[in-house]
Amino acid sequence: MGTGWLYEAGIGEERAALVENGIILEALIEAEGEGARTGAIHAARLAEILPGKKAGLIVLDTGEEALIDPLPIGVTEGGNLFARITRSAIPEPGRPKRAKARHVEKADAARPAPSLRERLEATGIAVTELAAHGPDRLEEAGWSELLEQAATGAIPFPGGALRIDPTPAMTVVDVDGALPPADLAVAGARAAGEAIRRLGIGGSTVIDLPSLEAKAARQAAAEAFDAALPQPFERTAVNGFGLLQIVRKRAGPSILERVRYDAAATAARTLLRTAERTAGAGTRTLTAHPAVIAGIEAVPDWLPQLARRQGADIALVANPSLALWRGHVSAAYPG
């Protein structure tokens, strides 16, 4: 089947997956209304010089706040500047992490970030755009399973399972299983590398493998990880306690962070995807947890878009007994 990108321009979000022989290697989601995106250049105002005078708080022309580091030379509080976004905002419990930016000269005029489709095309790998009325190739490759893994953090692999938990400081991956320690370390390291790639996990990650006394066993686990996760990244060696730390570029929220920390909105967009692909005739009824229904209603254009794409009326039903990810769609006259 080969390797290629599958791309969907869905309602409320664009999504893509790099699929090889029917398996998702890498997945990307870009939701509308998320704020400044990596690569965009914005006009901005320096609102505050932070303690230590090495970084500052800027307000972009969109009204969004971002951190700028290092401070631009010659710009004082209240001064204007241009800034390139180096990392978009990250959802977290409580207050999200602000976007990060660097100063650029005025000669670099303000411009939007490359679109997801443009970034895919820049990889040089073939891109196939999917339509809602065609085969659901993303689902065939395991899209729903990927979202469920992100929601639960539980990812099985032959002989064991990963447990992935994001924290404000780092992502923690625990490896557990019944294999002998050296074998489990190799299998777990490989599975962890694949999961980090598939879920787009960046920043600092610590993997807790079984304790290994033999240097050769620790090296074998590290090599298995290296084979599973393409560069660029930096890592430590596996120490005797089985700990392996990785640092990877972080351009925006991972799928893990979207599903965990922006759950209702992500579930709402996922339900709209299901609705787009629900066959039949007559009114489409979307039934889901009240938070998911509220997320759909919060964006006035989403339901009209769905009605146009389906050529049918849309009804929403809030059911508090349903979990966030257990919404469903029915047609008045099923196909």
Rank of each mutant, 00 (worst) to 15 (best):
R308A: 15
A221N: 01
V206Q: 03
A221P: 00
V259P: 07
L184E: 03
P210T: 09
S211E: 14
G200R: 10
L209T: 06
V238W: 01
V186W: 01
R277I: 13
L303M: 14
A187R: 15
A315T: 13
R197V: 07
D208K: 14
A307D: 03
A294I: 06
A281E: 13
W302C: 01
I255C: 01
R198M: 12
A264N: 08
E223G: 04
E257W: 00
D262A: 15
G200S: 10
L184D: 03
T287Y: 04
P300L: 04
T266H: 11
T236V: 09
R273N: 12
D208E: 13
R248W: 08
G203L: 02
T285R: 15
L184Y: 05
L243N: 04
R260V: 08
A279E: 12
T287C: 03
V259C: 11
A263F: 05
V299I: 15
A214N: 13
Q219G: 08
S211P: 10
N319S: 15
L303D: 04
T205Q: 02
A264H: 08
D208W: 02
G311W: 00
T278M: 09
L209K: 12
I196H: 00
A315M: 09
R258C: 07
A228I: 07
G202P: 05
L272W: 06
Q305H: 06
D183Y: 02
T236P: 10
A267L: 03
H289M: 04
A237I: 11
A279Y: 03
R250L: 14
A315Y: 06
T278A: 11
A220M: 05
P300N: 04
R308M: 06
L244K: 01
S211D: 07
V247G: 01
A265G: 10
R273L: 13
A281G: 13
R248A: 10
E297C: 05
L271P: 03
V186F: 01
A191L: 02
P320A: 14
A185I: 00
G188A: 03
P304F: 06
P304N: 09
R197I: 10
V317G: 05
A214P: 07
Q245A: 14
L256D: 01
P290Q: 11
